[in-house]
Every structure is written in structure tokens, then in C-alpha cells.
Simulated scan of single mutants.
Amino acid sequence: MLSPVSGDFLDQADPYRRELMAHCYRMLGSVHDAEDLVQETYLRAWRGYDRFEGRSSLRTWLYRIATSACLTALEGRSRRPMPTGLGGSSDPGDELIDQGEVPWLEPIPDRMTDPASVVGSRESLRLALVAALQHLPPRQRAVLVLRDVIQWRAAEVADAVGITTAAANSILQRARAQLARVRPAEDTVTEPADAEQRALLDRYAAAMERKDIATIVELCTDDVVWEMPPFGNWYLGPEAVGQHLALRCPGKAGDLRLLPIEANGQPGLATYLRGPDGRFHAFNLQVFTITSAGISHVGTFLDVALFAKFELPESLPADHEPAT
């Protein structure tokens, strides 16, 4: 049974859970790790709640605890990249290289963060930006997120990170400069209206289910990027993407089923592949960047453990209707 203090803490703190999830995800690049760190944040805060003196808001206090927990968790860890962050584009004819040992960036379902309302807006959760943040050392990452996303004052950031205000300002300048060097241009594009995006993805889903590679390529921009962790290979341009799909996309027409998802404030699709039993089994998750010219980026994640985070079934029945 909860004590009155425990009950009061949960009532006061629970409304901040989604934005703290977004904060930990920006810091860590992993939905699994972010979930663990939010739990740790609430446990630490609950244990110390009777000593909370209210000198700052409860929200600020929770962010300080979460930031400290994230910085501790990041000690000695490698950053979580996307394949584009590791080297040049690949030839579609090359064998796929499974780099399962790399701690890859993961997508996060919108239901866990509510991008439309969390502090920093949905743009601050986009895959491209979170991938760029992973290039920053942990303390630079924390300072930049707290200043430029959460919009804290320099003194508040310094207090949270345990440094002077002057040091916080210096770190922020270095972090902004580094982010500008690694942040892709696609992260600043203006997207078409949601209805237009959904219509385009409906066409894409139907083409994938028909294995209509020509239509898929037609829907992509001239500089489209296709990447698919845990494979280190990635492709630049519609021709390379089309060749990859022709050579590597498994199954034949009718062997795929796709369901819409929302991740990182972006549209996406969950892909299921027909198995020997006739059912369609979890295969990958795709997250899209869409511009007025078409699909400019496809992040394809083959870790089927992510399906549970998106509350998706492990399989679909053999008679599941196609998108067409």
C-alpha cells in the first residue's frame, strides 16, 4: 500500500512521464534504455521526495534527476549511430554486412512521447536530429538539449550538469558547432501536410505489397537515403535503392503486408513477411522523411523486438487484406 507521500508524488509527477521519456531518448538514442532511465528517475525521485524542498518546480527537479541518470548511464558507452554515420554509401551489389555488435539508434513510438505536445516539439524527436545528437559527447549533448530543446536558462543547465555557467555557455557553443557539421540538410526540410504524406505512404505500401519497385523508386527524391540497421550498408539515390530492393527484398508479390505506425514524430510502416505457415510475421519497421518532392529518407529497422514497443502483433493472419 502506498504511503500518503508516495501517492502524492505519483499524482504530481506522472504528468511529466512522456516528456521525460522524450528527454531520455534524445540523450540515449534507445527506446529500451530511455524507458529504463525514466523508471530509474521516478524511483530516485520517489525515494527523495520527502526531502524535496520546492526551491525549483517538480518538473525541473525531475529533469535534473533524469539528466544525471542519463549521464551516468552514458559513461563508457559507445554512441548509437545510423549506418550513414559510419561511412560512405554502399554498392547495391555488395553483400549485406550485419553489424549486430553496434548499438544502433532505435526509433521511438509516438505514443510513448506524444511529439505534438512534449517540450521541444516533434521536430526535436526526428530520427535525423537524434542521430546527430549522438555525435556529441554526453555532457555536450545534455547542455545542448537542456538549453536549445527544453529552453532552460544557462544557470539552470549549469546547476543540472554540475558545472559553472561560463562552462555551460562554452560547452553549448561547441555543441552547436558540432551539431551544425553533422546534422543532415533533410532535418530542416518542410514536410507536406499530413493528408498528403498519408496518401503517398498508401501508394508506397501498396507498391511494396505488389513488389512494384518502379513505383517505389518513383516516389523517392533524387537524393533519397535508404539505411537499415543492423546492416552497415546504406544506399544513396533512387537507382541504388531500386537495385537493392530487386536484389535483396525477400518474397514475391503478395508476400508482404504493411501497417501504418508513427515514430519520432514521423510517419512509418510496419512490414510483415509471409512465412512457411502462411501467416505474415514481423519483419521490419520503416520510418520516413517526406518532402514536397517525395520520400527523402527511409530508416528501416530490422530489430523485431521493437514491434512490442509499438504495440504491434508478432504476426498477421494469412488472410490479412493487402493495402491494395
Rank of each mutant, 00 (worst) to 15 (best):
Q197S: 05
T190R: 06
I290A: 04
A180K: 08
F288A: 08
R279V: 11
R248N: 05
P267E: 11
Y272Q: 15
A193R: 07
H244Q: 03
Q286I: 13
G237Y: 05
R279P: 01
G278L: 08
R174P: 06
G251D: 04
N284K: 07
T188P: 08
S296N: 02
N264Q: 13
R279Q: 15
G251A: 08
V182C: 09
A214D: 14
P276Q: 13
R279G: 06
G265F: 00
D222C: 11
M208N: 13
L259R: 13
T190Y: 15
V182S: 10
L200C: 05
L256A: 14
R181P: 07
D223N: 14
D223S: 15
A240Q: 12
R176L: 11
L200V: 01
Y272C: 08
G265W: 12
L200K: 03
A175R: 14
L259T: 04
Y272D: 12
T190W: 03
Y204K: 12
E227K: 07
S292C: 09
L256Q: 00
H244D: 10
R203D: 15
A206D: 01
G232R: 10
P276N: 14
V241E: 05
I261P: 04
I290H: 14
Y204I: 03
L179I: 06
P250F: 01
G251Y: 03
P230I: 06
F288T: 06
R203P: 15
C249T: 05
E227P: 10
D255Y: 14
A207E: 05
L256P: 00
K211I: 02
I290Q: 13
E218T: 13
A214Y: 15
R181C: 15
A240P: 13
G265V: 03
P229V: 01
Q266L: 15
P229Y: 00
Q178Y: 09
L256D: 07
T221G: 03
P238S: 04
A199R: 14
T190N: 10
I295H: 14
R248Y: 10
P250W: 01
E196A: 15
P184E: 08
L179Y: 10
D187F: 04
P184W: 00
G268M: 04
P192L: 13
G254H: 01
N264Y: 00
P230H: 02
C249V: 05
G275K: 12
F231Y: 05
A293F: 03
R176H: 09
R274I: 05
N233S: 03
L269A: 04
L285V: 00
L256K: 06
G278I: 11
V241C: 11
L201N: 03
Q173Y: 09
L258K: 06
L258W: 11
A293Y: 05
M228N: 15
Q286A: 09
L219M: 06
A177H: 07
H244K: 14
A199I: 07
N233L: 02
A185M: 12
C249M: 06
D187A: 15
I261M: 01
N233F: 01
F288N: 02
A263D: 11
Q197G: 08
C220W: 03
F231P: 01
P230C: 02
S292I: 08
